[in-house]
Amino acid sequence: MSATDPRPPASQPAAELFEFLCRMGDNTLVLGHRLSEWCGTAPALEEDIATANTALDLIGQTQMWLGLAAETEGAGRSADDLAMTRDAWDFRNLLLVEQPNGDFGRTLMRSFLFDAWHRLMLERLTLSGDPRVAAIAAKAVKEVAYHADRSAELVVALGDGTEESHGRMQAALDRLWPYAGEMLADDAIDRAMAEAGIAPLPSALADPWEESVRTTLTRATLTVPEGAFAHRGGKDGARHSEHLGHMLTTMQWLQRAYPGARW
């Protein structure tokens, strides 16, 4: 912000902060739910448990992000209200994480692309000017560092595996790559957060993300698709894919049918 900028200092960007916190919390909520869909049906018992663990980590992080979002909003809503009673257009998650699981290879590739970004984002958020954001990031980054190591290792094992597994991983990469660009593109909310010293600009994560992802994909003998086209519309809620609505129908059913039900 320049000295002649007429706007007041962004010391209390509550509306933008709420949006940002919903983005963080909706990413972890939607990916957490997607991963939980494998519970009981993953290709091996060990992978089933590991995937469910990751899902639980992400849901735990959701409670923190959406809890702080609800507090910031100050409208009497709770984290549960935000998770279970908003409709698709109010969700602020990236399009990448709402994409359906597909086969296990596609699920892993989706996690790999997201985890690499998530880790970089959380590392920088530990230095956030908002101590509440920094505290959540400090707790989450340890879990996410493990997620990122695990998904990268499996992408290498399956990419540089059999002809069958290589083919599936390449198909997954070709399909999901156009959804990765949204993670690294800035918009007005991102700029407000950066100006307030709360979060880094997503574009500042682009170089380290590309470098780490390309290094792993090379080890995995996979070919990064050419072209810079990126789907947009998830994190601003403007254009979610049809998959999100279907997922929410399942995820929110109980609270929609029996509002306030507890166990």
Binding site: P43, A44, F104, A157, L158, D160, G161, T162, E164, S165
Partner: peptide, 9 residues
Amino acid sequence: MSDHASQPG
């Protein structure tokens, strides 16, 4: 890396 058993399909 084709010497280990593939994931159960």
